[in-house]
Nucleic acid binder design. Structure first.
Length: 586
RNA sequence: CUGCCCAUAGCUCAGCUGGAUAGAGCAACGGCCUUCUAAGCCGUAGGUCGCAGGUUCGACUCCUGCUGGGCAGGCCA
């Protein structure tokens, strides 16, 4: 409807101003009803270049407008706005459109926008997902759904950081718990993973492999500097350094003592964490097409290859024994190390290989959904891509800000250390999946989120999830009261509609395709949540203004139910984009 | 010190590539259930869009400076 009107305007402008070049035609739905159904400020924009006053130009455009069955009137208002009023039949045509193909309403042809990869969550598989990851998951999943709906061919990917030190630390932590369960007593390192799940994995290790990994305490700590005594008067930096050195020595010692068994434990720990993570996300309605392993980049030699390529291109140099990438030559604020003095590649090196690999897969666009704390990392990745000859503008990084939990008005304290964090699983169990998914996307992603647990769990009118779901349930309640077949509703006489609240509802309904498309281009699932609230509000208003079922007027009843049912279908569609269910009863 | 994000009603937040009288929810106040689910609706009140400049027909929106809050600046990931 909007695009048709846009074409009419374009034709009119071509006639009124033959020599002008017009970009996008501004066309908005005014807030105020007396400004019509659509308004355009195009005359104001073109007036200057055309050298005449805006109202005059608006008049010319109006007169050049092709005849159309959808427009009832076109007025010139204010400084030169063109206000369009639609015919009643045009206004309610949306109802028939929705009923004819409910799944397709607002959906754009698959692949019409090109292909896109969305990488999100990608948390280290070193422990359960917490509420921060939950936001990334909810955002990324909703965004992916939206992009798919708006015509992108979407691939959802989880990058698994299965290489590197954090995984080693988890493996050691598990092994140390295993040892202590077998009465080998050692001081547990403060930078080890301390959650209960580590102990559980240690028990599983015993169940699968018995006592075959037991070593003595002296063997394990041989060559370790030990954990600094808390009473020692050394500064925090020194203490930190010694703790890290102790951990490195433990890892080294574990690898030496266990030999092949180390790889077995490592693999088992990783598999267990990934399975848990996958299940957790699935229960949250978040499913990935691809789980991409960081380790595979090392195994296939891609990391070494990409570093070699940068070297051939002359973008590397050696300083202080380490290999540096000249990222400052490509927009980064300083150069970055890709290979450490000890010969080990940095995380950045594998990330370059990963992004190079992704670009090689031929996506038109690549999205990395990252926590906002990683924003400083963007320039160096882009720098690497540019250096490798890629078009870095194809990479977009939507940032997701932090989440704070509130219960009864008080902030829930969380710290990743000591495993004192609220997990996504706990959140889901407390609020339910629907509330969690909806609350997560109720705020702009680049805005810090205060997640109000009391509100999310309240079964009251304060809860915005219920507000939308209730509108959907209400429609079905009315439909079942009516008792007819909803398939018949397509043939209703929509010309019987026309009250103020009916017009308003149809108007919001017709906005859905634009809202979905805009939300996709803005990477802004939150605007769908807001749209759904608007739609529910328009429905509730309609519901209260007059009964849908009028006993002595079956035709009017059918027309009104057609409007109500199409509303329910769009509510369901919109909620499904956000991963929220649409119950028929509440 | 430098970079990024944020600042809108008492509170939590929307505000579409610059458009007409800046919106919603909660809280406050006043109404609406013998009729399809009151988890709802209708109404009233509430604002110097952080401050100061600039760009123009027009600025919550764009630019600069300032104030106040969050985050980031490793041979960690």
């Amino acid at each position: 409807m909007k695009t048709e009107l846009e074409q009419l305007l374009r034709a009119a402008i071509a006639l009124a101003l033959p020599n002008s070049t017009v970009g996008d035609i501004p066309l908005e739905r005014p807030r105020q009803a007396d400004h019509g159904d659509f308004a355009s400020s195009i005359a104001l924009q073109l007036a200057k270049a055309a050298g005449c006053n805006p109202r005059q130009l608006a008049q010319q455009i109006k007169e050049a407008l092709p005849v159309s069955g959808m427009i009832e009137s076109c007025d010139i208002a204010g400084p030169g706005f063109l206000n369009f009023k639609l015919r009643a039949a045009t206004r309610f045509a949306v109802v028939a459109n929705v009923l004819l193909s409910p799944e397709q309403f607002g959906r754009q042809a698959s692949g019409s926008k090109g292909s896109i990869q969305v990488e999100f969550v990608s948390s280290n598989p070193t422990g359960p997902l917490h509420v921060g990851h939950g936001r990334g998951a909810a955002f990324g999943a909703s965004l992916s759904n939206l992009l798919d709906f708006a015509g992108w061919k979407v691939q959802r990917e989880y990058y698994v950081n299965d290489a590197g030190r954090q995984m080693d630390i988890l493996t050691v932590s598990t092994w140390l718990r295993y040892l202590s369960q077998h009465a080998v007593n050692l001081d547990f390192p403060p930078n080890g993973y301390q959650g209960d799940y580590v102990g559980a994995m240690a028990e599983a290790l015993t169940a699968h492999h018995g006592a075959s990994y037991i070593k003595t305490a002296t063997e394990v700590t041989a060559g370790c500097p030990g954990i600094p005594d808390p009473i020692l008067p050394i500064d925090d930096k020194q203490r930190e350094a010694q703790i890290e050195a102790h951990m490195d020595a433990l890892i080294h010692q574990a690898k030496a003592l266990l030999g092949q068994d180390w790889a077995t434990i490592h693999a088992e720990v990783l598999a267990e964490q990934l399975d848990d993570c996958r299940a957790d996300l699935e229960e949250f309605g978040v499913v990935f097409d691809c789980w991409f392993s960081e380790q595979s980049l090392y195994d296939s030699g891609r990391v070494a290859q990409v570093v070699a390529r940068l070297d051939e291109l002359g973008h590397l140099y050696v300083k202080d024994g380490a290999v540096w990438f000249k990222s400052s030559a490509f927009g980064d604020e300083k150069d970055r190390v890709v290979q450490r003095e000890n010969g080990i590649y940095t995380y950045f090196a594998s990330d370059i290989a990963y992004h190079d690999e992704k670009f090689g897969r031929g996506f038109d666009r690549i999205l990395n959904v990252w926590g906002a704390d990683h924003h400083g990392y963007i320039p160096r990745v882009k720098a690497a891509l540019i250096a490798l000859g890629h078009d870095a503008s194809r990479l977009v990084v939507p940032l997701v800000q932090f989440v704070s939990l509130f219960r009864n008005g008080e902030k829930v304290q969380m710290s990743t250390r000591k495993g004192q964090f609220v997990t996504l699983r706990e959140l889901r169990e407390e609020t339910g999946r629907d509330a969690a998914r909806f609350f997560y996307v109720l705020r702009k992603s680049d805005q810090a989120l205060d997640f109000d647990l009391s509100l999310a769990t309240s079964e009251s009118n304060d809860n915005p999830v219920y507000y939308v779901q209730y509108a959907h349930a209400r429609v079905h309640s009315v439909l079942s009261r009516w008792g007819g077949d909803t398939k018949e509703l397509v043939n209703s006489d929509l010309s019987l509609l026309g009250t103020e609240s009916e017009v308003a509802l149809a108007h919001v309904l017709a906005r859905f395709p634009e809202a979905a498309d805009q939300a996709a281009t803005d990477y802004a699932p939150h605007s769908i949540a807001f749209y759904l609230r608007d739609l529910a509000a328009a429905f509730h208003s309609c519901y209260n203004s007059a009964p849908f079922i009028v006993a002595e007027q079956p035709e009017l009843t059918r027309a009104r139910l057609a409007l109500a049912y199409s509303t329910a279908l769009v509510l369901k569609l919109g909620l499904s984009l956000l991963g929220v269910s649409a119950p028929k009863q509440m």
